[in-house]
Every structure is written in C-alpha cells, then in structure tokens.
Amino acid sequence: MIRIENVSFRHRTVPILSDITLTIDKGGVVALVGPNGAGKSTLLSLVARLQPLQMGNIQIDGLPVDATPGRQLARVVAILRQDTTVASRLTVRELVSFGRFPHGRGRLSAADHAIVDAALARFDLADLAGRFIETLSGGQRQRALVAMAFAQGTDYLLLDEPLNNLDMYYARELMRALRAAADENGKTVVIVLHDINQASAHADRIVAMKGGRILADGAPCDILTPDMLEVVFGLRAPVETIGGKPFVLHQL
C-alpha cells in the first residue's frame, strides 16, 4: 500500500502540491490524469524519493520513503521518469539487466537472466537485444526503459507518461502488459497518462489532479463524465460508452 499523507511541495515560492492525501492499495492500475502543471510528475517523483519531501509523509508498504535506505526501496518500487535521456552505447540487454542491480549488485544469477529475458520478450525487444540504445528510435528506447523498470521486479511500478513516443500499436501493447502484470502478478502500477481513453480502457481507478490538488478519484465510469472533464481540463466534450467503458471524444 502506498500511503500519501498531507504532502505539500513548493518550488521556491511557487506551490506545486497542496495538502495531498491519497492511499493506493496493493494490486491494480491507477492512472493519474490532469492538465499540464497539475503536479502529477512531482507527486510521482516524491513517492519515488527522487526529490526530498518538504511536508507530509509518504510510506510504501510501511517504509517511509525519506528514511529508508535507497537500496531497500529499490527492491520495492521502480520508477520511469518522463523524458529520460539515455544517449548511451549500452545494448538493450545490458540496459534491461541493470534493472536487476538492486538485487545482485551487478552479479546476475540464472534467475536474473530469466527475468531479463522475460522482460525483453514482454516488450517485444528480443530482436533488438544486441542493439545499442543510441541507435534505437524514440519509441523503441521508451520500451527498453519500461522493460528495465519492469525487470527491477518490484511490487510497485511508477511510470510517468510512458506512452510518449509510442505508436498506437505499442501504446496498447504496453497498457496490456501493465494490466497483465497487475492481474497475474499482483503488481501495483501508478501511471501518469495524457490519453484519458487509455486510462479508461486499462485502469481500475483514475485520480484527477489540477493545480496541485486532487479533484476527483474513482472508477473510470465515475470520473469520465462531461461535467468532470470540464472541471478538470476545462474541456467540453461528448462521452460515449463502448463495451461498458466511457470514452471521451475530445477530438470533436
């Protein structure tokens, strides 16, 4: 369980997050949505202890993120940040293998190799395994980074806009893979999404943020209503239900 209590965050004098309290149960896919500048990425980076907490508490499975050794946390939570730049001459397999670093400190056991192979297969990277990262396209690179976070084998996976650079096919494949990880392996996936229909199609729960606050929190069918969209995004758009799930026709 991720427990976020009364978290506020300021960048110099600008408030980014104001008194956020949120509990995320173990297992399932939770989507964070909201307009640009809502504070979604900041919240995710605070949970992953990439920035120091200024106010409030965050615990993952009872471990306070600001007081737990980094190595221990790295076996509980993995994060993929938005626009991670890797201009590196590592092969895809080498990069994904570094996801196992928190477990063996660089020595890969047979089990580690199996996990790396499984991550490569899951994200359709087996054919690219020997290629250098810097020779890949943006979407291929993004998949390699997701595979690395996945190979970390943590119960909690935090992903900041992982669908960036992905075409329709791989965007859906990635969402399905995350859904499967939640359903089959009991993983908890917290994911920042811009495509609200991806959130509706694959998430159990949507948390909508705006201006550093949580405006709405619930199942997709409760959140994706014309009124809520107007409040959160300032956007008036029709919502249609297809196969029992709401879809926003925001292009119209």
């Binding site: 990439l50 190595r71 790295a74 994060i79 940040r81 890797v86």
Partner: peptide, 21 residues
C-alpha cells in the same frame, strides 16, 4: 564500482531509482 559508474551515466534519477547513493 564499475557497474555503479555505468548506472551513474544514466543520470541522477535512474541512479536513485536503482538504489544507488
């Protein structure tokens, strides 16, 4: 510290994410 150096080259956030001080 060879492996840790490779990870450092991926940047601060990737390093912290992998549990490196």
């Amino acid at each position: 510290v060879a492996d840790r150096l490779t990870i450092m080259a991926l940047g601060r956030e990737a390093s912290i994410g992998l549990g490196i001080d």
